[in-house]
């Protein structure tokens, strides 16, 4: 077995399993921690949580252009939605990923056509560049940017950049492939323990504000 095969087997085998366990375990821990905190110190929150207003609020913000701020920033909105949809859909529906899953577990499902996947990848990378430029150029965004924001952007962009380069299969295929798998695993593991945690918490913060605005304030929050 070559060195490459050993490395590949390690990062796509044991390390992948570790990453998934850290992601799932970490996510459960973070959500549990948040809910415990509510129970310990802000139990009153439950009294005001409302399914109706939570869902109303989440829908207004999860649908592009359904809130005033999404409409005011149309380019940002388009970029944000494509970026996040790419981030969530590509790991599950990219043909190359589904083939791997099929080889490992014998199950398979619909995949994104390769051409479309390429386009999505490029747009996600463009979106990352756009986010980077915003951080560097816009004074208000630059002022609140911390080094961790660049790190998070790198973590999110890396699987797409490396995946795109590996997919070209022109040069250093193995190098990019290894980096691609590694960066995907780093991102998975980073979600619960960095501000990527907004993937887990956004639904709660949105639901709480939606409930307060709907149930107590009788006002719209979008």
């Amino acid at each position: 077995m070559s060195n490459f095969d050993m490395l590949y087997n390690f990062i796509s085998g044991p390390l992948f399993i570790v990453a998934v366990i850290v992601f799932i375990g970490g996510s459960i821990y973070k959500i549990h921690q948040l809910i415990s905190l509510v129970n310990q110190k802000e139990k009153f929150i439950w009294r005001y949580m409302s399914w109706k207003y939570s869902i109303r609020s989440i829908l207004h913000w999860i649908i592009p252009f359904a809130s005033t701020n999404w409409r005011k920033r149309s380019f940002m909105t388009i970029m944000t939605f494509i970026f996040h949809m790419g981030l969530v859909c590509m790991p599950f529906f990219l043909a190359a990923h589904v083939i791997l899953i099929n080889e490992a577990f014998g199950v398979s499902w619909w995949t994104i056509p390769d051409g479309t996947a390429d386009v999505i990848t490029v747009i996600v990378i463009i979106a990352c560049v756009f986010f980077l430029l915003r951080r560097l150029i816009l004074r208000d965004v630059r002022f609140i940017t911390t080094p961790s924001d660049y790190a998070l952007l790198t973590i999110a962009a890396a699987p797409f950049i490396t995946g795109f380069l590996a997919d070209q299969q022109c040069c250093y295929y193995r190098f990019w492939l290894i980096l691609h798998i590694l960066s995907g695993e780093i991102m998975l593991m980073a979600i619960p323990f960095t501000r990527l945690t907004h993937m887990l918490y956004a639904v709660f913060t949105r639901a709480y504000l939606g409930s307060e605005f709907g149930g107590v304030r009788h006002a719209r929050d979008w």
Binding site: L34, R134, L138, D140, V141, I144, T145, T146, D149, L152, R195, T197, H198, Y201, A202, F204, T205, Y208
Partner: peptide, 10 residues
């Protein structure tokens, strides 16, 4: 939740 969730988007 607020401090952990804010992604400094401006």
């Amino acid at each position: 939740a607020y401090m952990d969730t804010c992604v400094h988007c401006g």
